[in-house]
Design a binder for these strands. Structure first.
Length: 585
RNA sequence: GUCCCGGUAGCUCAGUAGGAUAGAGCAACAGCCUUCUAAGCUGUCGGUCGCAGGUUCGAAUCCUGCUCGGGACGCCA
């Protein structure tokens, strides 16, 4: 077995246990004592491979299935399990029993809970952090809205997914470069300039820039149906823009500035910041070099007046670099950006958080770089996500079918505000908390499901604050804070453990946090953390409902240690998703 | 036509290096606040895991075919 597999298994095991300076996992211990009884029938590693979590409550904490053993030993699996279980014992295990073909191990809850809480309280916010990133750089291209178009629900996905992936990467020891690759160049500006010159006027645009520019854009697409000359005109104006025509450039600068002002309001609400706003226009004067470079590598051929890179060996259509009129294309700009980013950041990974409808485009992009044999070509990765659908169909800017993110956020905040007035009118900082909760609801709603699946737009779902939602997690956090305030303890000791079934579920959940972060990182999948938080909160709320915490007895400190541990993990988990945790709500 | 996603409870979705009796939330119904925040907790109802084969001791999970929905497929981004 290769070392990487062993180390990943080791991390997967969870339950890290320190004794005598040797880091042991509970899976490790369990597998070890089984291996010793099997006299070489299976190695410890093979056993670790199949050890799993029992399916049902009351079946213990670790399970070893005996099916494969039954084959080689030619003995019925339940017989093997019961023989084996009788011989297994270890101080960390309260008992080991067989159930059908499984050997189930029960951990000593008092000892393990003490260990877990101690680790969390000592490490605090660093609990769950990893160091394998070694400060290498990951470039993340995300959000990337189009100038002169409204910030739609679709851009929200890229923004919150990219932001969360960035936080998770940092938690794993990487440095991140967050790039907002603004859609501030392209034929759409030709269209917009034409539309503005034909039907627009300055005063209206100044008053409500995004709204007016959008309606001009929509009008262009309506008119072009009856007048195909408009398309040609738009192409000409874009060409002028690329050639540095003053009138075109001035309009472009104006539209871009107004758009950025609007976007920054949204980023402020979402609490997202970028390291670079180099959009497509930034690469305008660098594209000649790209084409020269690709020609130097003999990659460029001519086809129907256009310059392309043939990709038939990758079973893909060719990648177009220039149109027959000489103007560049989307792919040219993305290639240029890839070169620029590698030269400037020497990234270990470069991610593109962009909708899955662009999968072909990115595959072409990566294939061009592979064909050019750039050694870093395989460090680029497309992180696709599904659409936000309206009535089962993709929303289209061209037809004006968009839902504006800012309006949705405002509505979420005011709903949160109403809830506060109703449920907790004495609360301080109502506006601030309402903002955290409203925005948290929207971000969580977007992140809780697999990013690849399409989402049917539903304002009702987004404004739901009960069940598997952001506010549910935030509420659970507020509960922990309320208890800790009332307890008035300066330092919580972890000299005693816990052994009731409700706290045990919480302890086991806390313990899987580091592993959940690994899973989220490797899959570029923030939903792992969202789902984890829901599970943790459910376990904690059950504990809260069934065990009285603030009783002055010998178990008080252990219970408070649990509450404190939970609060640390929830806060950190929410922050990784880009959500704030209110102290009260 | 080719390629890429997806089909699990009425709705929204978890669940894949194959494992025990398929899980949540919402909705519906029934309970729990003189006791740590009821944005919570508990219970009831609810499923031929799209269809058909195959591999296996064992398949929602792996393979093949089919079907349905969405998307992409040279001068848009």
């Amino acid at each position: 077995m290769v070392p990487r597999v062993i180390s990943s298994l080791f991390l997967e095991a969870g339950f890290l246990y320190l004794k005598g300076g040797v880091c042991m996992s509970y899976v490790d211990v369990f597998s070890d004592i089984i291996a010793k009884q099997l006299n070489g029938e299976l190695t410890k590693e093979e056993i670790m491979n199949v050890v799993e979590k029992p399916k049902f409550e009351g079946q213990g904490d670790l399970a070893f299935p005996c099916f494969t053993l039954a084959k080689t030993m030619k003995v019925a699996p339940h017989k093997i399990a019961s023989d084996l279980a009788q011989k297994l014992e270890h101080p960390l295990f309260e008992k080991v029993v067989s159930e059908g073909p499984y050997v189930n191990g029960f951990l000593d809850q008092t000892e393990v809970s003490k260990e877990v809480m101690k680790t969390v309280l000592e490490q605090g916010r660093n609990f769950g952090s990893h160091e394998f990133g070694h400060d290498e750089r990951i470039v993340i291209d995300f959000s990337s809205p189009n100038i002169a178009k409204p910030f739609s629900m679709g851009h929200l996905r890229s923004t919150v997914i990219g932001n969360a992936i960035s936080n998770i990467a940092e938690k794993c020891g990487y440095q991140t470069v967050k790039v907002n690759h603004l859609g501030d160049w392209g034929t759409q500006f030709g269209k917009l300039i034409v539309a503005y010159k034909l039907w627009g006027n300055e005063a209206t645009v100044r008053e409500e820039p995004i709204k007016e520019l959008l309606s001009l854009y929509v009008k262009f697409h309506e008119e072009v149906k009856n007048n195909s000359d408009l398309d040609e005109l738009a192409r000409e104006w874009f060409k002028k823009l690329e050639d540095g025509d003053e009138e075109a450039l001035n309009l472009w600068r104006w539209f871009r500035g107004e758009s950025l002002k609007e976007f920054s309001k949204i980023y402020e609400l979402l609490n997202v910041a970028f390291d670079s706003y180099h959009g497509e226009a930034f690469y305008n004067d660098k594209m000649k070099d790209t084409i020269t470079e690709l020609k130097r590598k003999n990659l460029v051929t001519h086809s129907e007046g256009a310059e392309v890179v043939e990709l038939s060996e990758f079973n893909m259509p060719p990648c177009l670099l220039t149109k027959s009129d000489g103007a560049t294309l989307y792919a040219t700009r993305d290639l240029t950006a890839a070169f620029y980013r590698y030269d400037n950041y020497k990234f270990a990974k470069s991610l593109y958080v962009v909708g899955h409808e662009q999968s072909l485009h990115f595959n072409q992009l990566f294939s061009v770089l592979k064909k050019g044999e750039y050694p870093w070509a395989d460090r680029l990765e497309h992180v696709p996500f599904g659409f936000i659908l309206k009535d089962g169909k993709k929303m289209s800017t061209r037809q004006g079918k968009v839902v504006l993110l800012e309006e949705v956020i405002e509505e979420a905040i005011s709903t949160a505000r109403n809830n506060i007035e109703e449920k907790n009118p004495e609360l301080n900082d109502k506006d601030d908390v309402a903002r955290m909760v409203g925005v948290g609801a929207i971000i969580f709603h977007d992140l809780k499901n697999d990013r690849k699946s399409n989402i049917e737009f539903s304002i009702e779902d987004m404004l739901r604050f009960e069940g598997s939602t952001g506010p549910y997690v935030q509420y659970t956090y507020a509960r922990t804070q309320s208890i800790l305030r009332k307890a008035k303890l300066e330092k919580i000791s972890t000299e005693t453990g816990l052994s009731d079934p409700y706290s045990w579920a919480v302890i086991k959940a806390i313990d899987t946090f580091p592993k959940t972060i690994l899973k989220a990182f490797h899959g570029n999948d923030p939903s792992q953390i969202a789902k984890y938080l829901i599970d943790l909160c459910r376990d904690f709320n059950k504990y809260y409902a069934n065990e009285k915490i603030l009783i002055d007895d010998e178990g008080l400190e252990a219970r408070l240690a649990l509450v404190k541990s939970v609060s640390i993990v929830i806060e950190e988990g929410l922050n990784l998703l880009g959500i704030e945790a209110p102290k009260a709500m």
